[in-house]
Design a protein around this nucleic acid. Structure first.
Length: 459
DNA sequence: TATTCTGACTCAGAAACATGTAC
DNA sequence: GGTACATGTTTCTGAGTCAGAAT
């Protein structure tokens, strides 16, 4: 591989884009200016209204200032980033408004980079890399009430990067004038390059795409032996759990934490002792997959059309998502798009009524004239009516699906917990094209399952 | 021995980006 | 046939999991 693709260097602002302190324009040192742009870009994000974010940013920013700047810039409230912010907003819009050919050119450049840095050779095969770019510098966006939000995420330099590649391969060249932190040849790990980020001091990796053979469903493929044991395991565990619960509670007051002695490490250790490869995650996967299979069996109607079958599939998938607690916030545009859909349904209903009228008229016409032409007209109207009925049904199914899916995220279970062979088998059995349930990326990731599962596959 | 830390890897949702559809 | 908006897809990166090492 060629090592990571580094984030582009900072381009200083044009002279007419100014930063103001206490109402007066102030020219910043390049390094100081760069960090200011990180904040300026986020001005209309909720983050910049949060005190922790502001404080962390200001603290880290001041650390990078020259001593003169630091002497002058003492309060964030007196900093005016608005002109800088506007500059970036305008720049974004200008990019969107670019003529087609220009956009095409940019795309080709990106593809070239992808082609050059986005692949590696693993055991003689060309494999796609998942993330081949270093994370660009910016302000840390912790989730929830993260105490470090707003801190400066520093630029990653070649000197920070450890390269991992095989002994007999050509070592990637560092960018000119730089060198790698280290080059090693460790074939016991899967990463190609790594660096330590400065916020949490954790290691970031460059690794392969989920479709690569290093990533493909090891869990599912070693699973059968484990999962055969889970059913009887559940049956006996029931009794034992109840007894243990009683035991736990005997020595506790009502407010005490019931499971103070049970953390994942202890649990996994115990499960590992029972059987090699058994962890808490295996149970999650097992439960998800067996639920999907059961629900599909219960909900699918062989006589339904494809749209209705897909509704059944999504319902089964939803049952799994609920089980795994994959909730999401109702999308911001939900109400509006639901209204649009409803409007479409109403329009279709009108069309339907219209088509029914026309058919009636055509029939009357046929009765009166009894000629070939009006017979053909009746047939044509019948066809039209059927088509509209089917379209209406499809729209109704869509609306139901959308409503039921409002607060549920299907992606995670579909991508990470469900054995894809269950879905593949279902598609084959009920004549549903696989593209209806897996998009391109998903089909790549699950290529092994699409090849191997037939319609009789049972989990 | 118990607890915390570290490294490797997977999961998860938001944002960016691309594509489709209605006007 | 072009544009604006909606929807679908991909990228990005913070968070979580798990095993083994360090304290």
């Amino acid at each position: 591989h060629k090592g990571p693709y580094f984030a582009p260097l900072y381009e200083p602002l044009p002279d007419d884009v100014k930063f103001y302190y206490d109402g007066k324009p102030m020219k910043l040192n390049v390094a100081t200016e760069e960090i200011a742009t990180f904040y300026a870009k986020m001005l209309d994000h909720e983050y910049t209204t949060k005190e922790i974010f502001q404080n962390n940013f200001f603290h880290d920013w001041r650390k990078e200032m020259t001593s003169e700047e630091r002497k002058k810039i003492k309060h964030l409230e007196k900093c005016d980033f608005k002109e800088m912010h506007k500059y970036f907003v305008d720049k974004n819009e200008a990019r969107k408004a670019l003529p087609k050919e220009e956009k095409q050119k940019l795309k080709e450049e990106a593809d070239k980079i992808q082609e050059e840095y986005g692949y590696c050779i693993l055991d003689g095969h060309r494999e796609k890399i998942g993330n081949f770019k270093t994370e660009p510098p910016g302000l840390f966006r912790g989730r929830g009430d993260h105490p470090k939000m707003g801190m400066l995420k520093k630029r990653i330099m070649p000197e920070d990067v450890i390269i991992n590649c095989s002994k007999d391969s050509k070592t990637p060249e560092p960018p000119s004038g730089h060198k790698w932190k280290e080059v090693r040849c460790d074939n016991t790990v899967t990463w190609l390059a790594s660096w330590t980020e400065n916020i949490q001091n954790s290691i970031k990796y460059i690794m392969l795409n989920p479709s690569s053979k290093l990533k493909v469903g090891v869990l599912f493929l070693v699973r059968p032996s484990v999962c055969h044991l889970i059913d009887p395991f559940y049956a006996t565990v029931h009794v034992r759990v109840f007894k243990n619960l009683q035991l736990f509670m005997e020595n506790k007051d009502p407010g005490d934490d019931l499971f103070d002695r049970l953390n994942t490490t202890v649990l996994n250790k115990h499960l590992q002792d029972l059987m090699d490869g058994l962890t808490a995650k295996v149970f999650r996967t097992y439960n998800a997959s067996i639920t999907l299979q059961e629900q599909l069996k219960a909900l699918t109607n062989a006589e339904d059309n494809v749209a209705a079958k897909l509704l059944s599939y999504n319902r089964a998938n939803r049952a799994v998502a609920i089980l795994c607690n994959h909730q999401r916030a109702t999308p911001k545009s939900f109400e509006k798009s639901m209204q649009n859909l409803q409007a479409k349904i109403d329009a279709k209903k009108e069309q339907l009524a219209e088509a029914q009228m026309e058919l009636k008229r055509a029939k009357a016409d046929l009765k009166a004239k009894k000629d070939v032409k009006s017979k053909a007209a009746v047939e044509k109207k019948k066809k039209l009516l059927e088509k509209i009925q089917e379209q209406l049904l499809k729209l109704n199914v869509q609306a139901t699906d959308k409503e039921e899916n409002k607060q549920i995220a299907l992606g995670t279970s579909k991508l990470n917990y469900l054995d894809p062979r269950i879905s593949v088998a279902w598609c084959k059995k009920f004549g549903v094209p696989i593209e209806k349930i897996y998009n391109k990326t998903q089909r790549e990731k699950f290529a092994w399952a699409i090849d191997m599962a037939d319609e009789d596959f049972e989990f």
